[in-house]
Design a protein around this nucleic acid. Structure first.
Length: 588
RNA sequence: GCUGGAUUAGCUCAGUUGGCUAGAGCACUCCCAUGGUAAGGGAGAGGUCUCGGGUUCGAAUCCCGAAUCCAGCUCCA
């Protein structure tokens, strides 16, 4: 693959940073230092040296000195034997360890023009440091990173830098990051009264506030209706079960985020980490015929997972999450057709939420470690090839990730793009050939024989929590009318003089099921408009003498100007139309 | 869980090298003003400076531990 100039710059900068670090901290051992999509990083082992984030500016200065000397980058090929010797003299034990995974002989070294700095590296780099824009990079932050990404290994210190071809690009990037931070759901959620966390309730356990709960219910009602159209049957199952259920499903043995069990009357119980085994009980409740299939059991249920404390974050990662879960019990010959149906349902729903750009990732088994997976390798081959076939015919772009499958089956994750072009993993379709064995789930086929059913685990939104986080960020809290917790704010010029009319109008909107509030607090109208704008209410209706006399409202749309007068009837019709069509007033 | 950072009123933040009754703006309450499309004026109330130890004549400030949050890492919907 062609390496672009900016990638060469970023990669070269990581070496220059390593050189600068060695100047300032001579006893540092080097890990690895690649280019990434906004810059570069390098992993260091500082040992006993006193390093802290305050030193970043100093390192940056040192880097600039090196760049200004306009050194050449030279590449030297050294036979493996000599290379090992060389790494030993450089005391580069991390690099030596890397050689286990590299078969090259000779090995490529990279040396700065003055011979001061040498690093094991394939390149490519820029020819001379003069190609590096001296104002185009900035060291940003440090963090810990496990050596070779394995949490059993030592943790090194990683220094990140942003790097671009010009100072302007760097500044634009930093500006965009700041703008994105403003729509962070962790900031907007509490500001807009959508959700909160309480220290005494516990980390990762969100509380949805009245406004946020309206949003949540709206999403839930919508998704339930859609799913019913597609033949889903909803059930309700308890939040806990005997641990035996999960021993039988083998989650107990394989899943590491189970909440520790509690003992009741001599039996062990646990909070459910997933709904599957419960829904299997529904399946097993009756003898099933091939004519009954597909049978889809659905539930929007809270599951509890003991996520590690450092992995929690806002609503994106919580310990109590509500999956829009469904289990499709199907015949083996229906796999292709039903995965297809699921993808249809998915695109219909995502389209209504303004997400139209998808990419799929297939989590496949690691063929070299089939012991980690339940079931016959032949079944895995078959399932994975079927999934690929469907994605190909649907022309959905996809990527296969070997080794990422759950122990019981391959899966498709759909990455949806939001308005900022960021990708989020939401929907999953998990094929499962193994649980039917664990629970002996069969159907009677047309020959009158028992046959093993196939299960598809499908969640369209993933979890309500994560999906809401993404909706909040996607719309920066200014939701389309159909989702907005408060859809219309009616503001009487004077609460005393026009309050009665304002409430009359509000009553008429309420009768139509429109979520409306009257802002008749004793404040100046300008201030109340400002407050409604900050609350990102889609429609503001101002009413005074003129409006009360003519049975109209003065309409203002969030973040737009005064839209002029509408009769109350027109206003209601327009609102209803916009709600039903799920269009977004900010999309022109 | 790991590495690093943060924690002062409901929110956003000030608080000099440890020193008297800890400050501001917004929000809240009351009073005045009764307003026409993004902040009218005044007064008041509100804080065990996250928690627990320690050092000191004296701690918001220094040290140790914990909790929570943030950035990564690892893991995941």
């Amino acid at each position: 693959m062609e390496v672009t100039q900016i990638e060469k710059i970023r990669h070269s900068l990581s070496h220059i940073m390593a050189q600068a670090v060695l100047r300032l901290f001579p006893d540092t051992k080097l890990g690895i230092g690649p280019a990434i999509d906004n810059g570069f990083y390098y992993d260091f082992d500082f040992g006993d040296q006193d390093f802290s984030e305050q030193k970043l500016r100093k390192i940056e200065k040192e880097m600039k000195k090196i760049i200004k000397r306009n050194l050449a980058f030279t590449q030297e090929m050294i036979p493996r034997e000599g290379a090992i010797e060389r790494l030993k003299t450089l005391k580069a034990e991390y690099k030596l360890e890397l050689l286990d995974g590299i078969e090259d002989d000779p090995l490529s070294f990279f040396i700065t023009g003055d011979g001061e700095f040498t690093d094991l590296c394939r390149g490519p780099h820029v020819q001379r440091t003069s190609e590096i824009p001296i104002d185009g990079f900035r060291l940003i932050k440090t963090s810990g990173a496990y050596w070779r990404g394995d949490e059993k290994n030592k943790m090194l210190t990683r220094i990140y830098g942003y790097a671009f071809e010009t100072k302007e690009e760097l500044e634009t990037y930093i500006y965009n990051m700041e703008e994105a931070a403003k729509r962070d759901h962790r900031k907007l959620g509490p500001e807009l009264g959508l959700f909160m966390f309480s220290e005494i309730v516990g980390p990762g356990l969100p509380i949805f506030l009245p406004q946020g709960n309206i949003l949540r219910e709206t999403i839930e009602d919508y998704i339930k209706e859609k799913k019913k159209e597609y033949g889903h049957q909803f059930v309700t199952t308890p939040h806990m079960a005997k641990s035996d259920l999960y021993i039988k499903s083998k989650h107990w043995q394989k899943y590491d985020a189970m909440i520790p069990p509690i003992n009741i009357d001599g039996d062990e119980y646990t909070l459910k980490p997933m709904n599957c085994p419960h829904h299997f009980q529904v399946y097993l409740n009756e003898k099933r015929s091939y004519r009954d299939l597909p049978l889809i059991i659905a539930e929007n249920a809270v599951v509890y997972r003991f996520e590690k404390s450092g992995e929690l974050g806002g609503l994106l990662r919580v310990r109590g999450l509500t999956q829009d879960d469904s289990h499709w019990f199907i015949r083996p010959d229906q796999i292709g057709e039903q995965v297809n149906v699921a993808l249809e349902l998915m695109s219909e729903i995502y389209n209504d939420f303004g997400m139209t750009d998808f990419r799929a990732e297939i989590s496949a088994a690691d063929r070299d470690n089939m012991d980690n997976y339940l079931g016959d390798p032949a079944m895995w081959d078959e399932a994975e090839s079927k999934i690929e076939g469907i994605l190909k015919t649907k022309e959905i772009e996809y990527k296969v990730n070997p080794g990422e499958a759950a122990f019981y089956g391959p899966k498709i994750d759909l990455q949806a793009k939001d308005t900022l072009g960021r990708e989020w993993q939401l929907m999953t379709i998990q094929l499962d050939f193994n649980q039917p064995d664990n629970f002996d789930m069969t159907f009677t086929n047309s020959e009158g024989e028992d046959e093993k059913v196939v299960v598809l685990h499908i969640a369209i939104l993933g979890s309500f929590e994560r999906f809401m986080a993404i909706m909040i960020e996607n719309y920066a809290g200014a939701f389309p009318l159909w989702l907005a917790p408060t859809q219309v704010k009616i503001l009487p010029i004077s609460g005393e003089k026009h309050g009665e009319y304002a409430h009359e109008v509000a009553q008429r909107l309420k009768e139509q099921g429109i979520r409306v509030e009257v802002g008749d607090k004793n404040e100046r109208i300008q201030k109340r408009i400002r407050q409604a704008e900050l609350a990102k209410v889609p429609y503001i209706a101002v009413v005074g003498d003129k409006e009360a006399e003519t049975n109209t409202v003065a309409v203002r749309i969030h973040s737009k100007q005064d839209q002029g007068l509408q009769t109350v009837d027109e206003f209601i019709n327009n609102l209803n139309e916009e709600i039903n069509s799920k269009t977004y007033y900010l999309n022109d």
